[in-house]
Every structure is written in structure tokens, then in C-alpha cells.
């Protein structure tokens, strides 16, 4: 399974929301859709789900146009909400029916998911009698019960306690193992880093970075060193203004080019008492900030 978005453009009136979004997501892998608030994540998701059409560009599923095929979508919107006054089973059945499921099938699927998420006791309760986290678990069922090929989870971990977050992680891993395409949209970088094999970063309606997360990390220029030393203060003055204090005895050292790495390491070990030297690898958080914030610049773009 392979989902491709090619050169998607969309504007609402004068306002250009998506200027150019292209991305590739594959089955059996989780895909992280990142971006600051207002970057166009929700618009991209809505275009993908055919809430409104794109102005131009195409969406392909296994090489053929997505709209010509009957592809099931499961969606957990960021703005959660179902019918607060209705019985949980009734509304789950309603949404399953809207997705085209037969009554007997959907009852079975819903009962499985209620059991899986530990919500069976609330089956016949009204939604507004549940806590926020539990309401979110019910909403997750609406995204998964009809066994969709593409699962889109928008900030799935917000508002969950650690135990429920763990449960959700397990469920997501199960879905990925089933070979589905799982699309994550989140600001919690640690979760994205944990799950997602590939990511796309949107900035001002444009996919500024997209691809395999490990490749992205590997390809950021290796021109910074992390140095741990009891003589951190001395090193900092010696290498000013290229050294930057990170912690009590830790420094970040910028090199003029990656080739200087070996020589600098040698110099350092000869002149100072060094506990540890390693090449700095950016976290997803660092990458995100680099590509979405033009004013702050903890590492140069490559």
C-alpha cells in the first residue's frame, strides 16, 4: 500500500493555505505529519479525506487515483467530540453505518474494540458521563472499528494519562503491524520519533522536508561536536565564539566544516582533560524548529 500526494495546492479565497504539498506514505509504517499551528496540516488531511477538493495536484493510492477506489479512512480529529447526550453504543453504530458497515458486523467490531480499550462497562452509558480521556478512547473506536486501510490520528496522545497512552501505543503498533498506513499529526515530537519511520514537515503550506526519519537525521551535516569535560570553561574560552555551553560540564562546538572533525577531536584530547566527545545528532525537535522557525537557528540547514 502506498499513498502519494503530489503538488497539492489549495487556497480559500485570497488566502493560500497550501502552496505545494507532496508526500509519500507507505503501508505497515507510520507517517508523521508535522507543522506549526496553521501550517496546513488539517487542510491537507481534509483534502485527503475529500471534505473539499484541492485546487490542483493529485492523490494516488498504489499508483492509481485515490477517488476511483474505495479506500476506507479512519479519522481521529484534533477537535474531539461526538454526541454528548447519546448512548455510546448507539453513536458507535451510527458512525459505523455511515462508513458502510452492516449492523451485525459493526456490533461485533465495536464490542471487540470496547473490550480492547477496556471500555466494555460503558457500552450503554451516555457519552457525557465519561471522563475526557475515556471519551477520547470512544472516539478512537469510531476511527478504527470499520477496519480502514488508512488511519489518520490528529494529536492522539493529548489528554491521555500514561496508562492510556501506553494502551494507545500498543493499539497503534497493532494497526501498523496489520500493514495499514497510519498518519500521525502531532506536536509531541517524542511520540513521532518513537513511531514514525517517515515524516513530512509543513511550513506555510509547503512540505519543506519529507522522507525517512533516519535518513534525514543522517544527512544533517555532521559539523557539531558535543564535548563533556571537567575543563569545559577553559575549552569555551579557547574556542569562543564557536563553543556554546549546554550543561554544567558540556559544550556544543561548531566546526567551520565537517572535515575539520577529526583534527579538532585530536587537538581537544591532546590539550584538555576530556570525558567524552561525540558528533551531535539533532533530535526531531531540533529538526522541526530548524525547518519551521526562521529566527531561531540551533543548527544550519543543509
Amino acid at each position: 500500500m502506498k499513498l502519494e500526494l503530489k503538488n497539492i495546492k489549495k487556497s480559500f479565497g485570497e488566502k493560500k493555505v497550501l502552496t505545494e504539498v507532496s508526500l509519500v506514505a507507505e503501508g505497515g509504517k507510520a507517517f508523521g505529519l508535522l507543522g506549526r499551528n496553521g501550517a496546513g496540516k488539517t487542510t491537507t488531511i481534509r483534502i485527503l479525506m475529500d471534505v473539499f477538493p484541492a485546487d490542483s495536484g493529485e492523490i494516488l493510492f498504489d499508483g492509481k487515483p485515490l477517488r476511483d477506489q474505495h479506500i476506507g479512512f479512519g479519522y481521529l480529529p484534533e477537535e474531539r467530540g461526538l454526541y454528548p447526550k447519546k448512548k455510546i453504543l448507539d453513536q458507535l453504530l451510527y458512525f459505523a453505518a455511515l462508513k458502510g458497515m452492516k449492523q451485525t458486523e459493526s456490533v461485533k467490531a465495536i464490542d471487540y474494540w470496547l473490550e480492547r480499550l477496556g471500555m466494555t462497562e460503558y457500552r450503554n452509558k451516555r457519552l457525557d458521563t465519561l471522563s475526557k480521556g475515556n471519551q477520547q478512547k470512544i472516539q478512537l473506536i469510531t476511527a478504527l472499528a470499520h477496519n480502514p486501510q488508512i488511519v489518520i490520528l490528529d494529536e492522539p496522545f493529548s489528554g491521555l494519562d500514561p496508562v492510556n497512552a501506553m494502551l494507545l501505543k500498543e493499539v497503534v503498533k497493532e494497526e501498523i503491524a496489520k500493514g495499514k498506513i497510519v498518519l500521525f499529526s502531532s506536536h509531541q515530537m517524542n511520540y513521532i520519533e518513537e513511531f514514525c519511520d517517515s515524516i513530512a514537515i509543513l511550513n506555510n503550506g509547503k512540505a519543506v522536508l519529507q522522507g525517512d526519519l533516519r535518513d534525514i537525521k543522517r544527512h544533517t551535516s555532521r559539523d557539531k561536536l558535543i564535548i563533556r569535560s571537567p575543563e569545559a570553561g577553559k575549552i569555551e574560552t579557547a574556542f569562543a565564539p564557536f563553543a556554546e555551553k549546554q550543561a554544567e560540564d558540556e559544550l556544543l562546538l561548531r566546526l567551520s566544516s565537517p572535515e575539520k572533525k577529526q583534527q579538532t577531536m585530536k587537538e581537544l584530547t591532546e590539550q584538555f582533560d576530556i570525558d567524552e566527545i561525540r558528533v551531535f545528532e539533532p533530535s526531531l525537535n531540533d529538526i522541526f524548529i530548524t525547518y519551521t522557525n526562521d529566527s531561531a537557528d540551533p543548527l544550519q540547514k543543509n
Partner: peptide, 15 residues
């Protein structure tokens, strides 16, 4: 009501 309870977010993608 559907809109303010945000059930619309899900409905609009389902129907």
C-alpha cells in the same frame, strides 16, 4: 449542536 460539540469534525469526513 453537532457543530459546537465538534461531532461535525467526524461527520463531515464520514458523510
Amino acid at each position: 449542536t453537532e457543530k459546537s460539540s465538534r461531532a461535525m469534525e467526524l461527520l463531515i469526513t464520514s458523510a
